[in-house]
Design a protein around this nucleic acid. Structure first.
Lengths: 255, 255
DNA sequence: CATCTGTTGTAATGATTGTAACAACATTTA
DNA sequence: TAAATGTTGTTACAATCATTACAACAGATG
């Protein structure tokens, strides 16, 4: 196992609640299945005196068992089980938090004012895609979009495919390389706003959902993608008009 | 929301990777849906100057969006989505770690020596139940057990019910209050070793799997339950004999 | 328009906490 | 008795918490 792998593993285990020493000890112990504190120290690189408290804490986390021999010997819980239980606990807790937070969110403790009039910024490709997926999955009536395939491919396309048939989907894009659904209208050809030579990935896109929400994404190449989201009627109307203009323009240039 | 609830929430969110201030800010913001930094400070109790860096970090975690008004306003990502994505990331990482750790575990880097000759200790009710479930689910031929219902109820019983029919299950217990399966043999009646008056919960139990593994559990009332596990042939044989003795004794006293 | 007041946003600093790293000591074992 | 094992204590460091100071800005007022 390379040092990069190990650093990655240690990082993940730290995010699951282990300290660096605990992670190193557990990884080392898995490599020898079972051993004494001194052996674990040798395999893991953790100072010998620090192996003992680390092992005690790992036992509390059910990742290690002890045999009261002399010297004491330790055994690693297999990772499917050990990590599995750790993760289960986190999931249970997260579900509990989600429920409580949902209640807070649904019963605001003060009158919410003009939230829908504002324009919200989102930064980073992953964040944008996460939020796009959420937006698409929340659609009830229709989705109109104009976007570059660089943005659509992957999770966004999957979300669109998963839309129930009652929701009409209309797209203008340079191309569409995923499956088509009967309720899709795809105008897939190079269109003017996306024809410029810009370095991939091209994150340009405009998504209109239910005539009430709009999300506009921009950015390409090395620059940090960003997006704007709004439920402001004015903002939505602006982009609806723009979309219809492009649609009409597209239909005419098809003749 | 009570202060206990809030502390619990903050604790869970910290385990999902947030700092205390980030958690308080997110919770507070959910309560007002959208607000300025000063409003968030007032609702959350986080010092006003510290709200800003906390909000920036929450934006990086896709839990908050910003509107570049003057003063700036912030909006909370709904918890299903925000927490959901956090958790997904953790799960993906945990699966990756599990896979890498499994490879390490399956290819020990040194010759494993007499691991099966040792007796391993496990402490704490939750840990014992976790390990019992793992043990039961790993059975391939048969399971023989003698245990008190206090220990069996819940996850252990569920695991037993989920055993495939090819695995024979034979139990001696004070009672069995879950469903029975055709491949179960249940001798469910007060038996001598469990008849003493001891404070509930009674964690006594002995589990033999495939004639190769044994786990013995003990403890009751307020005392910390503990268990021993071994694959040592001698240890397993000892308990097999003991089990058969009790079984014979049980069958005779039924006549 | 200049001035004043209050608000917003940022950076710096100090305190606290938990972990990593190391040293010293006590006990046990061969 | 020397080496190994196990325990305890100390120091350094990093991150977070908590607070302070200040510049810039916005709005109100004369």
């Amino acid at each position: 196992m390379t040092s990069v792998d190990q650093n990655r593993l240690v990082e993940i285990l730290k995010n699951l609640g282990l300290t660096k020493y605990e992670a190193l000890v557990y990884i080392g112990l898995l490599g020898i299945r079972e051993g004494s504190a001194t052996e674990i120290h040798e395999i893991s690189g953790v100072p010998r005196a620090s192996v003992y408290p680390a092992l005690n804490r790992l036992m509390q986390k059910n990742l290690v068992s002890i045999s009261h021999t002399s010297p004491r010997r330790y055994r690693a819980t297999p990772p499917e089980e050990g990590i599995g239980h750790l993760l289960s606990r986190i999931e249970v807790n997260a579900d509990e938090a989600k429920e409580t937070l949902r209640e807070i969110h649904q019963k605001p403790i003060q009158k919410v004012r003009g939230e829908e009039e504002l324009i919200w910024s989102i930064y980073g490709k992953e964040h944008i895609i996460d939020r796009l997926v959420d937006l698409i999955e929340g659609a009830k009536v229709d989705i109109r979009l104009m976007a570059h395939w660089d943005l659509l491919q992957g999770e966004v396309a999957d979300a669109l495919i998963g839309i129930p048939p009652a929701v009409k989907v209309e797209m203008i894009c340079d191309r569409w390389e995923s499956e088509r659904q009967p309720h899709f209208t795809v105008l897939a050809e190079p269109v003017q706003p996306f024809r410029d030579s810009i370095p991939p990935p091209n994150m340009a896109g405009m998504f209109l959902v239910d005539g009430k929400q709009v999300m506009v994404s921009m950015g390409s190449g090395d620059e940090m993608p960003s997006a704007l989201f709004s439920e402001s009627a004015g903002f939505v109307q602006f982009f609806l008009r723009y979309y219809r203009f492009i649609l009409d323009w597209k239909k005419q240039s098809d003749q």
